[in-house]
Amino acid sequence: MWGGYTKVCSVRISALTILQLPNTKPEAIAKLLNIKEIYYEKAILDYDRGQQILAQHSDARLIEVPSHWNIPELHGNSESAEDWNRIKRTVLVLGVKKSLQCRPNCRSSDFVSPSHANGCAMACVYCYTARRKGYANPITTFVNIERVIAYLTRHAAKQGMKLEPNQVDPKDWVYEIGENSDCSVDAAICDNVKDLITTFRTLPNAKATFATKRVNRDLLAYDPQGKTRIRYSLMPHKMAQVVDVRTSSIAERIGAVNDFVEAGYEVHLNFAPVIYSEDWLANYTELFEQIDDTLSEKAKAQLQCEVIFLTHNEELHEVNLVWNPQAEEILWQPKLQEDKLSQTGGNNVRYARGFKGKLVKPFCDLLQEKLPYCNIRYAF
């Protein structure tokens, strides 16, 4: 194991905790997650949520670690790239969120909330969160959700009412709650997402938002009352089959929009990442027509979108070559790309500025032609 610091042990779970377990996972989520190992900080045992999750996976092998962030056999082990999908399916990390802060944003939200989780059970080959943790990035769930919620409640209260509309929202301060994870999948682990949606329902000046590639219909029962905005990430089916690994199909995501609107969510679209190929505009034409044919008038009336062209990373490229080289033939195109320093200081690549300019305009023109009711919040 890890230099004597990792301990495999058993944990006593009370009968009361077992009675408080979340509902059984939907079949589609159950296929995505089959937890066999749980790495956990000892402090999670002091929280009801930590006890609940351990009881939910009572057959899992428990491995105590000093820190959820630094687990070398997961995050620093280059050999684990070959087990990329197995690790995402079978490993869970539990920790306590220590640092709480809201970071200002200006695109899909006004603020980025403190994380209730990071990592993901899905395996999109372009995912930026995998770059931060190295060779494996399973879900890490934070069990002290009450502290996160208390912080958000105080932060929203300090903002007062939003007096001037902006491109994020005309009325509410919008908080991104899923920057480092996919909330639709996180909701299958525990009730953190449900608790957040319930909280924002009570805040007079704020709403939550998150992007997702997974349809989890359990969320239909959360009663958001217009205070949570889901952004379904979409791309042409042909491309998604290669790069959106272990996600819901594009047809399933589009097909869920009407139901989530009826359930009280705002539902917007996130065309991200837009990936160039020789037939890319023809493929997007089919996608836009599919959206138009599927969405109800009620869904169309509230629809907005954001457009984000591909950003990639050399280190992630090297990892992907081990487990999904086919995708890298599409994503890694040095003749079309240039270096880009990310907001967090990482060295990434994007489509070269002159070339990208020739992509953004025809994409937006096509979108406005096919979906004239869909406001483009931003495109870059």
Rank of each mutant, 00 (worst) to 15 (best):
H312E: 15
N347F: 04
F363V: 03
W332R: 01
K358T: 10
K335V: 14
E318G: 04
N347V: 14
Y351V: 02
I330P: 02
K358E: 12
A352I: 12
V360L: 04
N348D: 15
I308T: 06
L336R: 12
N320D: 10
N313I: 07
P362L: 02
L367I: 09
Q326N: 14
K370I: 11
N313T: 08
A327I: 12
T344D: 15
L367P: 09
I330W: 06
C374Q: 01
P372G: 02
C374P: 00
F363L: 04
L303E: 02
Y373L: 05
T311R: 14
C364P: 04
N348R: 08
E318M: 11
V319L: 12
E315D: 13
Y373S: 01
T344C: 15
L359F: 00
P325S: 08
A352K: 08
C364L: 08
G346N: 11
G354C: 03
I308V: 11
T344I: 15
V349Q: 03
H312K: 09
L336P: 09
C305I: 07
E338F: 07
E328W: 08
K335R: 13
S342G: 14
L359W: 01
G345Y: 03
W323R: 10
N324T: 07
Q333K: 14
L303Q: 00
Q326I: 15
L331N: 08
L359K: 00
D365R: 08
Q337S: 08
L321V: 09
L367H: 00
L310Y: 00
P334E: 02
N348G: 04
V360W: 00
Q333D: 06
G346F: 11
L336E: 11
I308S: 02
H317A: 09
N347E: 13
Q304D: 05
Q302W: 00
Y373F: 01
L371N: 03
L316Y: 07
I330M: 14
N348E: 15
G354R: 03
F309I: 11
E315M: 01
Q337R: 06
C364K: 02
N348W: 07
K335F: 15
Q343E: 11
P362K: 04
V307L: 06
W332G: 11
L366V: 01
Q333G: 06
L310Q: 01
G346D: 15
L341M: 12
E306P: 00
F355R: 04
R353Y: 09
K340S: 12
C364E: 07
I308F: 03
Q302A: 10
T344M: 15
I308G: 02
Q302R: 05
D339K: 13
D339S: 15
F363R: 01
Q326G: 02
E318Y: 03
P325F: 03
P372R: 06
H317Y: 12
L310G: 01
E338D: 11
W323L: 07
